[in-house]
């Protein structure tokens, strides 16, 4: 079909698969950073200290309103201006981690806010400690509504890793570009990259949905019988 070369496809496959591991690692590390920093962002917006509250909210808004690819360039190139050299990997992980931390902080916030005020009051009435209140009562209830958002952003960060190629992180897109310019053939590398992304993101999305239903059923919060 359309001059598709199978032998070339097979030839480039090992390098693409190797690069897939880099892509997965970038997504995994970036998501790990985002999960933790996002929680810090979310909790910072719950403190009674006005200035922290306000500045974190504004920072989150700013990061969410501007393009990730520009943020990647910014982090990568601004360092050297102050004699601070970040490797492409470090700069990329900082940029993508912070970007998704902003998104996740909104997911956490919405999750926490979805727990009715009465639940906090009931914990107070039972004299539960703050830690117990969060871990035993509030978080288990905040989690199911937050899971779909968290899952979407896991898939989202994975699909955004190709942007890291612009500063030379050797993930899938970067490898496909290299393969293309070596051989002057773009059909197979780019198509294969597309297929690899589909092959990972579709099952992941499906798996996440199954996981969500399982969690809310396990916690007994859906009406269906166990």
């Amino acid at each position: 079909m359309f001059d598709w070369k199978w032998d070339f496809t097979i030839e480039i496959l090992p390098r693409l698969i190797l690069a897939t591991f880099n892509t997965l690692m970038a997504a995994g590390v970036g998501y790990g950073i985002a999960l933790i920093v996002g929680l810090i962002f979310a909790l910072a917006q719950r403190t009674p200290i006005r200035i922290i509250n306000w500045s974190v909210r504004e920072a989150v808004e700013f990061i969410r309103s501007t393009p990730l690819v520009l943020q990647i360039f910014f982090v990568f190139y601004v360092g050297p201006q102050f004699d601070l050299r970040l490797s492409p990997w470090t700069a990329g992980m900082i940029a993508i981690g912070l970007h998704y931390a902003s998104y996740l902080s909104e997911v956490y916030r919405a999750g926490l806010e979805s727990v009715p005020q009465g639940q906090w009051e009931a914990c107070r009435a039972l004299n539960l400690s703050t830690r117990r209140t969060y871990f035993r009562i509030i978080i288990p209830q905040a989690l199911p509504p937050a899971l779909p958002g968290m899952g979407n952003y896991l898939v989202g960060i994975f699909k955004d890793t190709p942007m890291l190629s612009v500063i030379g992180v050797a993930e899938l897109m970067h490898t496909a570009n290299a393969l293309g310019s070596e051989s002057y053939r773009f059909l197979e590398p780019y198509t294969m990259v597309g297929i690899i992304f589909l092959a990972i993101s579709l099952p992941t999305a499906f798996g996440l949905r199954t996981f969500e239903t399982w969690v809310s059923k396990t916690l007994g919060m859906s009406k269906s019988k166990k």
């Binding site: 359309f2 001059d3 699909k159 955004d160 890793t161 190709p162 942007m163 190629s165 897109m173 496909a176 293309g180 773009f186 059909l187 780019y190 198509t191 990259v193 597309g194 992304f197 589909l198 993101s201 579709l202 999305a205």
Partner: peptide, 22 residues
Amino acid sequence: EIFRGTSLLVQLYWIFFVLPLF
């Protein structure tokens, strides 16, 4: 599913670099 399941950058490169082959 195809457009949401792959990256915009992949789609962009595909449309710009691969479509001409067709």
